[in-house]
Design a protein around this nucleic acid. Sequence first.
DNA 1: TATATTGTAATAGTAAAGTATGACACCGAG
DNA 2: CTCGGTGTCATACTTTACTATTACAATATA
Lengths: 124, 124
Amino acid sequence: MQYDDKIPIYYQIKNFIYREIIVGNLKLGEQLPAVRQLAVDLTVNVNTIQRALSELIAEKVIESKRGKGNFVTEDETKIDDLRRRLIDEYLSDAYNNLHQLNVSDQEIIEYLNQYIEDRRKKKS
Amino acid sequence: MQYDDKIPIYYQIKNFIYREIIVGNLKLGEQLPAVRQLAVDLTVNVNTIQRALSELIAEKVIESKRGKGNFVTEDETKIDDLRRRLIDEYLSDAYNNLHQLNVSDQEIIEYLNQYIEDRRKKKS
DNA sequence: TATATTGTAATAGTAAAGTATGACACCGAG
DNA sequence: CTCGGTGTCATACTTTACTATTACAATATA
């Protein structure tokens, strides 16, 4: 995993775990890799993993069981809501950024369609 | 101006100045407010302004004239390219983020249309 | 020429993020 | 009960961003 040096690593890891859950690489109730293992996998310090996890635990997306491990919540609704929230966040970020450049609603849609089409052509 | 505490302030200011130019609040060749004034306006330290400006100067978006002031480049093409680059960046960020949540191309377009429509209704 | 205004630079201090390391607490299996 | 794996916590150190402050350099103008 490569990190954006403009955003705190712990925050990027938090979002990475969100994705893993939403995409299903981590199932509901499933145990996460041990923190020391995650630290190795994600090439950061255990404390940085802990920093990300502590926020996820506070949000009850992850449940921590001392001596056993960290587990994804069983609450499906919570994850569905999370997915919705992230999608909305990404959309509004893009919308706001583009609008601040004086790109109209109409143009935003056009540009996006064009972007996706260009991407298809390049077959990336 | 309010800052996102997840992103360096100097970087947000740099992007703010990009926008001011692209939107036309700062015309080609126009003189920027003095660095000390910018610091007051943007409620940060002069050094932070300088940090943002030094990058813009390195990119030749801003030209610095010691003793006179900082000026927007006269190079219209440069600004057009910049606008294009930012738009593309915002689109690809959104696209990548959404794709990573397993949202398909089709759904991305649908969600965006829905987002914009919802926004219109709320009349915000 | 003197003064105000502009950009530039250096120093020092604070805070947050990240690393390295070691210690402690809990749990389950042998 | 002991041991290995788990999460948790604390301390110390480094780096980056930011602030505060001071000083210096170039320009325009009165």
